[in-house]
């Protein structure tokens, strides 16, 4: 199914480049291009330096950090780690974030695909109007209802549980939107009819035909959803009270009060929260960019 992956931008940009005949540059243009590249590289440095220094400083002692800038790693990684662990169980936060992000991502994928499937292939009355509602949900930030949501959670005795963080993922508008477009393009209705004749139930068709065929699209959205949930700050901040239950971002924000005197440990804690996302990006950048781009398709 690899060929069904939405082509990421550069592939097509490259094709275009290949078509153009090479031409000789005039001296003025050479200088222009050198400046262009310098500018691009400078921006890349600005984008990457904070992360680089974060990783370097995570390996240096507070004394070394105080003394001045360094671009080469120090030797205090272990010490920093021990200091960090003394007052904060960062792996517990890591685990908590996984406990929230994994089920959220799975729910968003499953119900997002189910909803998208219905909008894409079933001609029920109100299909178009309801799909506009889905698009509308993409425009509403959680901040606007957070007080009501909290009060409701209090009433239902769901505050300080992960349910309030996980369950809303069932209604992830962007996933529905993206997967509907994906299914419109990649899911032949005849396959569904073939399965219907072959003897599949409606839900069986979704499980056995629709889900496997839409997997590349679901993967794209799931990576984005996972990162989004992993990064979510406000809702867990409001909903969780026990330090044992804190997700990584909440825990990291507490670094401020915790390690005022130990900069190395602070950098290390931040690095531990950021590096997994960077790795995910290196591995899945094409999926991620395809997913981000798709959001702008309509509106």
């Amino acid at each position: 199914m690899q060929e069904h992956v939405l082509p990421a931008v550069p592939a097509r940009a490259k094709e275009r480049k290949a078509v153009k005949p090479a031409r000789r540059l005039k001296p003025g243009q050479v200088v222009g291009r050198i400046f262009l590249y310098l500018f691009l590289i400078l921006l890349a440095v600005i984008c990457f330096t904070p992360f680089y220094l974060m990783i370097i400083n995570a390996t240096r002692s507070t004394v070394e950090i105080n003394r001045g800038l360094s671009l080469i790693p120090g030797k205090s990684l272990i010490d920093n780690y021990i200091t960090m662990q003394q007052s904060m169980n960062i792996w517990r936060g890591f685990l908590n974030s996984l406990i929230v992000a994994v089920p959220s991502t799975l729910l968003a994928a499953y119900f997002g695909a189910l909803t998208a499937y219905a909008f894409s292939k079933f001609n029920f009355r109100g299909n178009r109007a309801l799909f506009w509602v889905v698009l509308g949900t993409m425009m509403i930030p959680v901040q606007l209802g957070i007080i009501g949501y909290f009060q409701m959670a209090v009433t239902l005795r769901l505050v300080n549980t992960y349910w309030v963080l996980i369950l809303p993922s069932i209604a992830t508008g962007s996933t529905v939107f993206f997967l509907k477009m994906y299914m419109d393009a990649n899911l032949d209705s005849a396959l569904l009819e073939a399965a219907r004749v072959d003897g599949s139930s409606e839900l069986g068709i979704f499980h056995r035909i629709v889900l496997p065929i839409s997997l590349p699209g679901i993967a794209t959205m799931s990576i984005l959803n996972f990162i989004f949930t992993w990064n979510n700050y406000l809702t867990p901040l409001v909903m969780l009270f026990d330090k044992d239950k804190f997700t990584l971002p909440i825990l990291i924000a507490l670094v401020k009060g915790t390690y005022k005197q130990n900069l190395g440990a602070s950098y290390l804690a931040v690095a531990i929260s950021i590096v997994p996302i960077m790795i995910a990006f290196v591995l899945f950048s094409n999926y991620i960019i395809a997913g981000v781009t798709a959001g702008a398709l309509k509106e």
Binding site: I252, A253, K256, V270, I274, I277, M278
Partner: peptide, 23 residues
């Protein structure tokens, strides 16, 4: 270049805030 420019967008905003607080 595209990948590097996009990278900061994915990182936990709370962590970025703390990172810059320290920096």
């Amino acid at each position: 270049f595209r990948g590097i420019y996009f990278l900061p967008n994915l990182v936990t905003a709370a962590s970025v805030g703390i990172l810059f607080n320290v920096m």
